[in-house]
Design a binder for these strands. Structure first.
Ligand SMILES: [Mn+2]
Ligand SMILES: [Mn+2]
Ligand SMILES: [Zn+2]
Ligand SMILES: [Zn+2]
Lengths: 153, 153
DNA sequence: ATATTAAATGATAATAATTCTTAAATAAGA
DNA sequence: TCTTATTTAAGAATTATTATCATTTAATAT
């Protein structure tokens, strides 16, 4: 799924290679559920029990600043993250709160074309994000899991 | 801007009419900046100094459940709200953190057409949200204000 | 390999947004 | 007006996030 290994990505972005950073990046890359900081920390601690909460927050923030990962906005009061930085869209579902990747090049192109032709006056567009809100009809044989822990409320 | 007055909207949705609810709904309707709970509370307190923080939170939650207003997701750890429930899109800007309405019926139609033709397998689409991220080039003579108060960090 | 040093981490405290709890107030209907 | 279910106010509690600072460590030079 990812071209280069985590170690190389860190070096390429001028970051020191630490076990914590490798763990965060590899963990996030291994998940397609757009996990919260808390979820990432939980997964890492299965193999590396001593990592500090604040460290994970700081590492994720660093990665976002470097453009290595993206923030994904959730409807609730939690930040979530995405290791995939190429243009794609997201399916939001109320039921499970899960955010699923939706790759659709035709759609991406259509939107890019639209805004190439029709400029928004006084606004320089840098990124197009589409949130598709709905429900999964298929309660099928998928491997989706909903890894997030429960908090707030 | 709004067809019916706040009182009628409350009645229509089966909610008791209270001064606090009227204040929240009228305040939110008067703003086009997608304010946070904190901002709304601040504005209300100019005229109604005694409203409790928790009351504003609860009222906003009630309105969202009734579909009278919408949540607008922000990139950071704050919820923001929108009194406009008809289909429209949003301009996000990093600089000011402001979220601006973008009405574009042609765009809305294009997206609805697209998903009418091309269904997403196993997914029942209910709402299409477009976040257009960029910067305002025009440092012009506008009346935009950025009403949010500062918090976190 | 060792020393040097800037940067990163861990532990913990501090903030800030949100939710909960409960007694008091009040809107709506009889 | 009386009754009652709902709503509000106040403050405490919870939770996500950020800050602080002493300790450790990765990278680099010797
Ligand atoms: Mn929170
Ligand atoms: Mn927060
Ligand atoms: Zn994604
Ligand atoms: Zn809006």
């Amino acid at each position: 799924m990812f071209e280069e290994d985590a170690r190389n990505t860190l070096i390429k972005h001028g970051l020191k290679v630490t076990p914590q950073r490798l763990a965060v990046l590899e963990t996030l890359r291994s998940m397609n559920t757009h996990p919260s900081t808390d979820t990432i920390t939980g997964v890492i601690r299965e193999k590396y029990p001593h990592i500090a909460t604040g460290t994970v927050y700081k590492i994720l923030e660093t990665f976002v600043e470097k453009g290595m990962i993206k923030r994904v906005t959730s409807d609730r009061d939690i930040m979530r993250f995405d290791a995939r930085t190429e243009p794609h869209h997201h399916l939001y579902t109320a039921q499970s709160g899960q955010i699923t990747d939706y790759f659709d090049d035709e759609l991406t192109r259509m939107l890019e074309d639209y805004f190439r032709k029709k400029q928004i006056p006084g606004f320089h567009l840098e990124e197009i994000r589409l949130q598709l809100v709905g429900n999964f009809t298929d309660t099928g044989t998928d491997d989706e899991q909903g890894h997030d822990s429960r908090h707030h409320k």
